[in-house]
């Protein structure tokens, strides 16, 4: 019986969460379907004018992706908290922040990545051209992991609280604003032929900063939540 290393432990956590997600496919599908429905509602609400839709498209897809990410957050730690496996994670010899990073990665693979994959289809509904679609994918690919990481802090803080869902939205949505601005901005800038490099670089910088800081804050919040 050898001791396990940090990388070992992190891959175990990721593999465990992916396996559970695979056995609970309905959970994964709900946030994806929410995303599709929310985006499809907008043309019904604002009319089907192609020019208007093309202008609003990037923002609508991004706002819906952000809300879908937020809805999925409640599941990030809730079941681990309920069945006691969260205590095991906290008591692991490995640093909790790294295990949190692994959990968030698994969560993003099952909730964020599907959104990124389906987003171009929704972009087509809004008449975005192929270049804009490409940038949409790139911006979501850089932006949604940041959303999952920031959201983890809120999910940990509201763990086990009554009415946690609405509170989670209040805590997390203001923090999502920079990602939204640069994510939707990247697509809009491409549509206006301005180039999206600056936007994407900033999204990348936000992601790097969040990777460093968010798992630490989430780990702290988890320790507070299980006291």
């Amino acid at each position: 019986m050898n001791n396990t290393s940090l990388i070992d432990c992190m891959t175990t956590v990721i593999a465990r969460d992916l396996r559970i997600a695979l056995r609970r496919r309905a959970d994964v599908m709900t946030s994806l379907i929410f995303f599709v429905i929310a985006v499809s509602l907008f043309p019904l609400g604002i009319g089907a004018d192609p020019v208007l839709l093309r202008t609003l498209g990037p923002g609508v897809v991004w706002v819906a992706a952000l809300l879908a990410c937020m809805l999925a957050l409640a599941r990030l730690f809730a079941s681990d908290h309920a069945d006691g496996t969260l205590e095991q994670l906290v008591l692991s010899p490995q640093p909790l922040s790294m295990l949190v990073l692994a959990k968030t990665a698994a969560h993003w693979l099952t909730t964020g990545l599907p959104l990124v994959i389906i987003a171009p289809v929704l972009g087509l509904q809004f008449g975005l051209d192929s270049e804009a679609l490409l940038i949409l994918i790139a911006s979501l690919l850089l932006g949604t992991p940041t959303l999952s990481l920031i959201g983890g802090i809120g999910a940990a803080l509201t763990l086990g609280l009554p009415g946690g869902g609405a509170l989670l939205a209040l805590l997390v949505l203001p923090l999502y604003i920079p990602v939204l601005i640069f994510g939707a901005g990247a697509v809009e800038a491409t549509a206006a032929a301005l180039g999206a490099t600056a936007h994407l670089s900033i999204l990348g910088a936000l992601l790097l900063g969040t990777i460093v800081f968010a798992p630490w804050a989430t780990a702290l919040a988890l320790k507070i939540a299980i006291e």
Partner: peptide, 22 residues
């Protein structure tokens, strides 16, 4: 500290792995 979705052997191995015992 057991996951309902996983079987007994998986649960045992994963929880020990996280605790640092391979």
């Amino acid at each position: 500290g057991l996951k309902d979705e996983l079987n007994a052997a998986e649960n045992l191995r994963l929880s020990l792995h996280i605790a640092g015992i391979a």
